[in-house]
């Protein structure tokens, strides 16, 4: 059922991945086994009821958790058997996260928030600052670079978070309900922005309860009881769509 046509190495690949909490008779299977591939430039939405494994999937994809079995590959690299320092570096350089709220450090301005991952990765401050400003331009917030989060609207804060998620070499964004705290129009503008990022060759995986926002995705994976029970593929790709 899951698309297997690949024209290039997947950005993210799950092969028979499962995650079980506990062991023996009290073990709880949170996910899997699931297998899928996500290619560069795709916007993929993950839907499903609470407890279906959506957040577990996202944590495994972002190397925040390790699978009980199966293989997770990020840009072709197996995440297994890596020490915490390696995983941390991999995350900083490969994956960005956006959550429903509380994404930004309140004591830092927008540009300081965006440049933080680069600073942590040892980039010179001037270079990090310049790249952060460029990334803020991508999300249309160059003029608000010196504002603190408290002085930004909810939608603007999410745009800053998206800029931070993509700053530097990172090209995969994992978003958990990024529009959950926003009104419909603002939420749509955030999804539109994510779609635009995909048109630049970046890749976005978004967990959402909101079907209207999932509708922007090239593919929607539906999870139930830890398994992918359905996949809908947009018939014709829009901007940033699936490569043929």
């Amino acid at each position: 059922m899951i698309a297997e046509v690949v024209t290039q190495e997947p950005v993210l690949q799950f092969e028979g991945v499962s995650r079980v909490h506990g062991s023996g008779p009290t073990a709880v299977r949170a996910l899997g086994p699931v297998s899928f591939k996500i290619r560069s430039g795709e916007l993929v939405a993950i839907m499903g009821p609470s407890g279906s494994g959506k957040s577990t999937l996202l944590s495994l994809a972002g190397a925040l958790d390790v699978p009980s079995s199966g293989t997770v590959r990020l840009n072709g690299r197996d995440l297994a058997n890596r020490n915490p320092a390696e995983l941390s570096q991999l995350r900083r350089r490969t994956v960005g996260f956006v959550f429903q709220e509380l994404n930004l450090l309140p004591g830092l301005t927008a540009v300081e928030n965006v440049r933080l991952p680069l600073e942590l990765d040892g980039h010179p401050l001037g270079d990090a600052h310049q790249r952060a400003l460029e990334e803020l331009s991508h999300v249309g917030l160059r003029d608000l670079a010196d504002r603190f989060p408290d002085n930004l609207s909810g939608g603007e804060q999410q745009r800053v978070a998206i800029a931070r998620a993509f700053v530097g070499p990172r090209s995969l964004l994992l978003a958990d309900e990024p529009t959950g705290a926003l009104d419909s129009v603002t939420g749509e503008s955030v999804v539109r922005l994510l779609k635009k990022q995909c048109a630049l060759g970046r890749t976005v995986v978004i967990v959402t309860h909101d079907a209207a926002h999932a509708g922007w995705a090239d593919r929607v994976l539906y999870l139930r009881d830890g398994e992918i029970v359905d996949e809908t593929v947009a018939s014709t790709a829009g901007a940033g769509g699936i490569e043929s």
Binding site: A212, G215, Y222
Partner: peptide
Amino acid sequence: RSATMKRLQEYTRHKIE
């Protein structure tokens, strides 16, 4: 659900255009 989602994706594609 699958058919409705597919329809929703189609409407969204028109909306983007």
